[in-house]
Amino acid sequence: MAHLFEKIQRYSTALQMTPLGIALLLFLIGPIIVILITSFWKFNGFLTIPDFTVRNYVKLFTSGLTLDNYLETIRIAAIVWITTTVLGFIIAYYLVFDVLSLKAKMLLFLLCVVPFWTSGVIRMIAWIPFLGKEGVINRVLMSIGITDEPLEFLLFSEFAVILSYVHVFTLFMVAPLFNTMARIDPALIEAARDNGAKGWQILLHVIIPLCKPGIAIGTIFVLSLTLSDFTAVRLLSGANVGTVALSISNQIGSYNFAYSSANSLFLLIVLLLIVGGIMRLVDVRKQL
């Protein structure tokens, strides 16, 4: 009996991991393998034909468009990342250190989650009536005399895309930061203060270093969401800003599955490299 129990215990970790393993294999690894295979197929302008050709990759790495797409995408991602990190840090800091009652903390945190009751796409579309030429913001600006002409850069622009990303993705930064900050032992801050540290010194030398894992997790969320999204680009830039995901979407729209597979796979690799780099810099496991 004891023997059997030991045996089960020995394999219990493996057993517990099996359901998730199967799900990941079927719904994540499987499709990626299909994409990998398709990326070596041939497209004749109309049909995707089974083949083994590196033509798609040669095209990908020699096309000037690839570089333009990546530069634009990385630019947008960087702006979104910096903005969401600063905002996320301020919000999390306020929730953890300035709001004293635990009930109020939880209530305010839940309030941050409320917008997530609607879909992300809806929250993106909701910006259109605000930002348009005849939208709320332009009307207000013109009625109080700040501008004479509607500001066109507000909608169908890179600005609109970044704004909607910041709006939708900031919470992905707030949540892990809130989690990390809440774990900081108040005694550490007291100790720093007792040793004569000023407010900004405590922030710089105590709180921010301890928040690194939270920032890392938030960064992974924000970057992967930003790099892979094309909905906001489609809707808020009027499909007018050349990001990697929009290019892929246009290739799929032209039924070029082979080239779009190669393109998607490369984007995935870039993303994995970024995530790998972050994991190397910061020990995210500390959080778990």
Partner: peptide, 19 residues
């Protein structure tokens, strides 16, 4: 129509979008 040079056209379109 979808043209014989469909793939080339899509590439050019993406360049137009990225410009």
């Amino acid at each position: 129509s979808v043209m014989a040079e469909n793939e080339y056209l899509t590439e050019k379109w993406n360049e137009f979008v990225a410009s």
